[in-house]
Amino acid sequence: MENAGKQIGKDVAGTALFGGILLLFLFGDRLIDPSFIPKEVLNVSTLFLSIILEAIPFILLGVFASALIQTFVSEDTLKRFIPKHPILALVPAAIVGAFLPICECAIVPVVRRLVLKGMPLHLGVVIMVTAPILNPVVFASTYYAFQTNMDVVYARMGLAFVASIVIGAIIYFFFRTSLPLKKQHHVHEHHHHAKNRWLETLLHASDEFFDVGRYLIVGALVASAFQAGFDRTTLLEIGGDQTVAPAVMMGLAYILSLCSEADAFVAASFGSTFTIGSLVAFLVYGPMIDLKNTFMLFAYFKPKFVAVFIFVVTVVIYGSIILLQSLNIL
């Protein structure tokens, strides 16, 4: 009896929730007068919602790709495609990343799934950092934003390729023996009837949307607070400094959490005051790791891995920019 009561209570809660959403759908914009809400709150919530709306389709693509891999790709098939030598495999991994037309929101669930299926972690990391930069849409937008200076475009693409291999090699060194995934769980082959496979894919995708979504929402909330509150014009004075400017632009790329398709235009708006090296740092570092993605990584990986990963990416990118500057290439 008690159980039945509980069940009814929960049904009522769910139905009330649906009724509430439906009510907001019909009359939501007439419920409160926005002029009573502080402008800062409105700006943050508008930016927050725009980041979420922009990310949802790509998260869905990512979790679907992940679910399809889970259901249709066997561990043996995957193993056959991966070169045996861990270091030599880095280059093909970077090339695979370059050919995957996926941005930074979608790539995290896909890489996690590939690693669960037996892909070595360091190769997954290489794919995760190359895919959002080395893709045709990002090339086109960077080209368009920096028409007057093609060096920026080539430096972005070239550095992303080389740095990803270095990052992969260092990650290999740190995590050769352990797999830093949360809830380690051996993915065993299921033997289902074929008709259930599509249904299973859908259920997977939906569960994973909720797994990663909560982290995305928190990440987007923090990023939008910075977006609305942080005064970028205060940065302009340090833009010409060869050692400080790249670090500052990397920090900015991290907190702004922009899509890699769009960040070139924001970088271009700093073009008249910041060094070329710092612009390239912004354009390479941001897609590899940012605030929003840090939260998403926490959904899947152990905190120690996330910390080491961020540290390695930061040191490698900053180091390469300083090196390229001292060689007068940037």
């Binding site: 959403i21 907001l24 759908f25 939501g28 914009d29 419920l31 409160i32 926005p34 809400i37 409105l42 700006n43 919530s45 508008t46 930016l47 927050f48 919602l49 979420i52 709306l53 909720f210 979504g213 909560r214 929402i217 928190v218 909330l221």
Partner: peptide, 17 residues
């Protein structure tokens, strides 16, 4: 947390930066 974007979007969609 998941309902937050839905509520913002259904109630405050008129705001322009």
């Amino acid at each position: 947390l998941f309902l937050l974007p839905v509520m913002i979007g259904l109630m405050l969609s008129n705001h322009v930066l």
